[in-house]
Design a binder for these strands. Structure first.
Lengths: 131, 131
DNA sequence: CAGAATCCAATACGATACTG
DNA sequence: CAGTATCGTATTGGATTCTG
């Protein structure tokens, strides 16, 4: 890394065991991250609105997901002093940039679900949580 | 769904709680899936080679990941009768199609890790497994 | 409203040892 | 070689309740 003349080193490798890339990939490869980022693509949203949009998410996991994304500077959190509380989440520039590949994933999933399932495949025996 | 005249219904929505899309997204949003699929992009690989390439993966998780991908028809498994055993994994057509968005993710991660980390951010206090 | 706190179940994951 | 079996830990995730 020190031999890099530019001072930058994009020579990260997700296939390397110890690389911090792994942690970042894990953050994105999470049950709610792709959905949360995607939800914010159309503009800032409040906690409650996110909770409704991400069907089935518990307040706990949503909060945890958002806090992680905030810590990684992918999402910003703005509190508007008021009663009752009003908090808005929005994508940062970095967040907008990761939104693209994540959208690619979501689109693929919605587009190819039928291919994965069948069409003549037993829908309930594929994709079930691993056992 | 029954009202769809074509018999097909690409109207899946990952934001819906009950949609099977969710399970598929979970399959892809897994610690090893993106790496395994990416590894196979350059051609078939054997179990041992995959294990070496995916730094740090345990045989258990690698086998589990591969079995899931096989069940979803993203990866094929071919056994060459020989002693010692010889097994090759390869992407299916469907697997090749999902490889693209996944590559997008890996590339983004490697490319933007430095942005997430800092450049003047305490590398060890961000991205740590959530606490 | 936006979450924090708590409790608990299910799962993911790793290390290791073992087998056809 | 290519896994499986077993064990133990860590993390995920949901349900619920509570508070500023």
């Amino acid at each position: 890394m020190e031999s890099c003349p530019t001072g930058r080193h994009d020579h990260h490798n997700v296939y390397e065991a110890g690389c911090p890339c792994r942690s970042l990939l894990d953050l994105l490869a999470n049950k709610w991250t792709a959905l949360a980022i995607g939800a914010l693509e159309d503009g800032p949203m409040r906690f409650g609105a996110l909770k409704q949009l991400l069907g089935g998410v518990s307040p706990k996991m949503l909060a945890q997901t958002l806090r992680r994304l905030e810590a990684s500077d992918l999402v910003s959190r703005t509190v508007y002093p008021a009663v009752p509380a009003h908090v808005e989440y929005a994508l940062t520039d970095l967040g907008r940039s990761v939104a693209e590949p994540l959208r690619g994933l979501r689109v693929w999933v919605e587009h190819h679900l039928d291919d994965v399932l069948g069409p003549d495949r037993p829908r309930d025996e594929v994709l079930q949580p691993q056992k």
